[in-house]
């Protein structure tokens, strides 16, 4: 259970960074930390104590495998998060070209 608690702490750090910081790059970093926490939570739910990874080996029989379904979901989720993060970074670079700053309060002021 303490592992889940540490995981929630990690998510809270990302949430704090998204809500509190004013730099666009810091907000993107907060999003990345939140993605880490969610992926780790899904893997932790599927872990079986003293389990083996779900891959068969040639000359031995492997019992007590861990849950393979959350790993598949996380594998999909990591690539999606990479794609969305690349899109957010592209938007940030475009905002920098237009307003010459990463500060979101100044961007809001310039919008009028």
């Amino acid at each position: 259970m303490s592992v889940y608690f540490l995981n929630f702490v990690l998510f809270s750090i990302g949430l704090y960074c998204v809500l509190r910081k004013r730099n666009l790059i810091k907000i993107i970093i907060g999003l990345i930390i939140c993605e880490y926490a969610v992926n780790l939570f899904l893997i932790l739910v599927g872990y079986k104590m003293n389990g083996r990874s779900p891959i068969y080996a040639p000359q031995q029989e492997i019992v007590n495998m861990v849950d393979p379904l959350p790993q598949v979901l996380v594998l999909t989720s990591i690539v999606i998060s990479l794609a969305t993060t690349a899109l957010v970074i592209a938007v940030a670079i475009r905002i920098y070209e237009k307003y010459h700053t990463f500060d979101i309060t100044k961007i809001r002021r310039l919008k009028g």
Partner: peptide, 17 residues
């Protein structure tokens, strides 16, 4: 796809700064 993203992000010139 990923190399296209990288290429586009790199080739953008930082002129207006």
């Amino acid at each position: 796809g990923l190399f296209a993203i990288f290429l586009v992000l790199i080739l953008l010139r930082v002129t207006s700064g």
